[in-house]
Design a protein around this nucleic acid. Structure first.
Lengths: 185, 185
DNA sequence: GAATTAATTGAACGTTCGTTTTATTAAGTC
DNA sequence: GACTTAATAAAACGAACGTTCAATTAATTC
């Protein structure tokens, strides 16, 4: 709390007017983060309709958002264990809702015979895991930009779902607007 | 330290005969873990030779090992940030060595024209990330056994590298011997 | 079996932690 | 411009932290 207060430029006691304790502060951070994530994807997903388009959009969105909100994502992933059981269950539920929005895409793509998938649940998790993994190694000054990385993961995602129509056209690189915050750590 | 001592059934001070401080204890845990992981894969990889076989073996091994040594892996992933810079660099180097053993497989598969890969570095990381991700959700009492999960990820891995020969034969389920420790948490 | 070394304990140290309390300053209201 | 409310500061609390040290028990050596 002292470190956070220092960062904000305030005394530790000041926090306690807004949050009853540290646990609730952490929960609020993670809750707000998940709300923003879900809202951002809800907004972004309006534009796309065909399953393979939606899958590509999801992967692009996920990678862009996770890189641009690295701090939030980092806390979301590392501090889940620090949440009290009820709070953790709540956040896990929001995460499940996000994952299900990908799962729905795979469902629809399978129903439309555009995808060939053995196990939808596992494929969903595989795509989430591999795209979230970008956060582990991505550095802004690397050989690839975020957009380039995202396009390569779109290709891999389409392979993973056995997409009939592998998009080669440059629909990629379209910018996803989620704010300016970029930080490496 | 008090909690660890309780778990072991000893007084906190007893640790300090074996490790000068908490940092060195953590480093030893992670160092030993990585040594065991690298040794286990070195042993396991003797048996396979063709690229697609080696890739399948790597994925099977990785998933089995990570599920069966969940505690070690969890510490390895969550506490990397708690290491002093030098110690962290050392562990990161061992992790890179492990990742490179997968990258070598992809290199060879590409050279032998058995794989079709756009970006080897990214594909390597994608496979590592998606297979490591199993640890996040896998529960022993789920609908799938570890071996079944591993086989499905082998299929996905082969798709990711554009493997010509997708293995359908039941070479899978072969047990990887890495000890008995299984624990969920 | 006494002497020496190794391993462990129990108690204490100085810090840092999350939090509370009291006092002080700033903002908003009439 | 006095009065109420809100926001922050400063100081302190007890608990938990990593670690040290003197005392004690266990193991080994001759």
């Amino acid at each position: 709390m002292r470190h956070l207060a220092d960062e904000v430029g305030v005394q530790p006691a000041a926090f306690y007017r807004y949050y009853p304790n540290k646990q609730e502060l952490l929960f609020a951070l993670m809750h707000d983060h998940m709300d923003r994530l879900l809202d951002a994807w809800a907004y972004e997903s309006r534009k796309v309709h065909a399953p393979f388009e939606r899958l590509a959009a999801f992967i692009r969105f996920h990678i862009h958002y996770h890189i641009e909100r690295r701090d939030d994502v980092h806390i979301g992933n590392m501090e889940l264990r620090s949440l009290a059981p009820d709070n953790r269950a709540f956040i896990v539920e929001l995460r499940a809702r996000y994952e299900n929005s990908l799962r729905d895409i795979l469902d629809d793509g399978l129903a439309a015979r555009e995808f060939m998938i053995e196990d939808i649940a596992l494929t969903t998790r595989a795509i989430i895991a591999m795209t979230t993994g970008v956060n582990v190694w991505f550095r802004a000054d690397d050989r690839l930009t975020v957009a380039e990385v995202a396009e390569k993961y779109v290709q891999m995602g389409l392979r993973l779902v056995g997409a009939k129509k592998i998009e080669t056209a440059k629909t990629g690189g379209r910018n996803v607007s989620v704010g300016p915050k970029i930080r490496t750590f």
